[in-house]
Design a protein around this nucleic acid. Structure first.
Lengths: 221, 221, 221, 221
DNA sequence: GATGAATGAGACTTCATTCAT
DNA sequence: TATGAATGAAGTCTCATTCAT
């Protein structure tokens, strides 16, 4: 527990305002003046805390990523086994985006395609963050719960890609409170992915059946 | 075979130049002047053909989408069965993006998150285009090749989301000529998806096995 | 009767179109392209006939002024006496503006305040034209119908100023078909002016009355 | 006496500069840059105070009209009787235009024929302002000093039309310091108008003379 | 004679950013 | 520390005008 300095509080105030403004109008269509008004300070004050409009933009996700990471760590520590953890992660990502749509909007719609952002420390944090998925997949491969010949990076791409696509569409349509909400897609996604990556124990034990039911060309073995 | 009018030729020249410029610098960081220089005409000439910078942007994907559609239709007519068609579609999308990285860049990195684009006719064309995936999935569900309880829209989201994620990353890293190339992900993706959606015939015939190999909580039945 | 050459006909076509366009949108808000479209020719053709947009503007009133002059001359030849001629002139000016609102609009709203126009030959024609009013007033002063100590230029200013004001307001309000129409102001204006400039014969014959009815401070003598 | 804020002072500085520039070059031929230079600030600063070039234009007469109104009110309070007041008003209008030629130029040569200006509040103020003339004329009609069958709006048109014509010509010829100066036309105008509108007391008292001196067709009774 | 195509010049306007208080 | 005031730099877009066919 640390007492936030006034300066730190003001800084976060600005970040929250910027997050809101940038989400709603888009980064390029927002002005420093918009952010200043939303914060309730003058334009100049923004520059006391951030060196440029871009600096302000890139600073926004830092705390969000940190928070998301901490929450995920905390939740995962309650869960045993890579499969269960995988579901936990999918759930967490969907839930976090859903609960923080401004953060989601900036991350997925502005920063994701910004090459300069790729050079920031925050981006490195993000990379680091997502390694956890790789680790869980590898863990599953080693424990025998998942197929042993997976490319964990590819699997992660499918997971993240699907989530981001779902969240982005939800955002684009104004975050409706319906079945398109990210968390409603958690289990379908988890099940679909799992069937593609889990080790099919039956096949191993009863492989003589292969002769009876010849697999189609997309079968795994 | 039609003879293109000079005007049409010039128009396409500009579109090609804009596609390149916008891809490389980003739409917001590009100027009409940049496009004019790349085309080899004056700024004003651009405005003879497009009413605004945004009009120019939105005009870019139109031809690409049309072409992609035609090519896909043409290829699909050679393929029988929804499963095979699904693979054909995944392949085509990856291949088309890979062969047209400028088009890919603008579609996935600029337009995808542009709300105004959603109001254009071109966007409507895109929606229409993607219905073909829905139709193939439905066809598979009806023919018994795919599970009968799928949500085709959800399945499509996973497919498109994965492809777009893969292509976007490839673009962000400068279109390297390596295993991250979109087409190299076609079969992994197809297999993964298929296992999640195909009807498992063995389960139907030998469902007594359930007692022997109790499914984990993510199992289908 | 002269047969107009094709060239001359085309030229007048353009002038009519320009008159209309400039009246409706204002000179500055009209483009050569607008005029070309209204005429039904290409932009370039305009330049075959007029050296610049301004040349086109300044050419518009020439014919109108010439026509107005001829008509006035023709009408005046039917009228005897300066007083009657004065009314004829007031009527003619109001009627001509009313019948040619495009011409009126350009003359009164665009050219009247254009310093460059003052250097054109057409402006000199206009000056010449308006001398007729001076001449009639002088004629009246000499014949004894009008006061002998008038400043004809001042009187003309009042006449023209009143007419132009009335016509301008009528134009600004969209040329309504009501009592504000220029010709409806002819007789009030004529009467008002006449009382200020006609020689008061009674005063001459019965000037002894002056003692009986001391004039107020605005009286003439 | 109020202390003007810096902001207000700067605003007026810009207005004065704009008034000068627009008068001298014409509104359309002036650029914001011209006004900025004349004011001694940057282009951008102009936009801190006025939202557009047109806003700047329309803001110019506001203060002038207000001032003119106040001065007229103040002067009129020294004058008794509608006839005297009428002369006071004619004098004031001529004098104010003469003393404020930039204001005059913009009012009479730019705004008078600008349809958009007619929709501004300032235009409404102007309308309101000119009602005072109507009221004085009506007052005179009721008191018996003026003819009872006048159309006050028509009379006003003659007054304003004459003054505007005289001032406009004076402006067009570069505000010469000679007999064409507006104030030199005050008494001639007043006298001419008065004879057209004052109740002719002699006619009433000695109407039997009508038989002796038959009036011409433009006579009043 | 007519025009389709192209453009140079420049206007208005925006906005991130700085400076002096 | 905070900000009111000011601005430089740049961008989009318009349009009168010309050139080659």
């Amino acid at each position: 527990m640390t007492v936030k300095s006034l300066k730190e509080a003001r800084r976060e105030q600005i970040l929250k305002a910027a997050e809101k403004v940038f989400s709603e109008k888009g980064f390029q269509n927002s002005t420093i003046s918009d952010v200043a008004k939303e914060t309730g300070v003058s334009d100049t004050t923004i520059y006391e805390y951030f060196s440029s409009k871009e600096d302000l933009l890139f600073s926004i996700p830092r705390d969000g990523i940190e928070l998301s990471k901490q929450m995920l760590d905390s939740h995962l520590s309650y869960i045993n086994g890579p499969t269960n953890k995988l579901r936990g992660m999918i759930y967490h990502l969907c839930k976090f985006y859903q609960d923080n749509p401004y953060f989601a909007s900036i991350s997925l719609m502005t920063l994701k395609t910004n090459k300069k952002f790729m050079e920031t420390d925050t981006y490195k944090d993000l990379i680091e963050y997502y390694k956890i998925i790789i680790n869980v997949i590898k863990e599953g491969m080693e424990s025998g719960e998942l197929k042993s010949d997976l490319d964990p990076y590819f699997v992660r791409s499918v997971i993240i890609g699907s989530i981001e696509f779902i969240v982005t569409r939800w955002l684009m349509y104004g975050c409706p409170n319906d079945k398109t909400q990210p968390v409603n897609n958690v289990d379908p996604l988890f099940k679909l992915i799992m069937q593609g990556i889990k080790k099919d124990k039956r096949m191993k034990n009863f492989n003589f059946k292969i002769k009876i039911e010849p697999d189609d060309e997309d079968g795994e073995e």
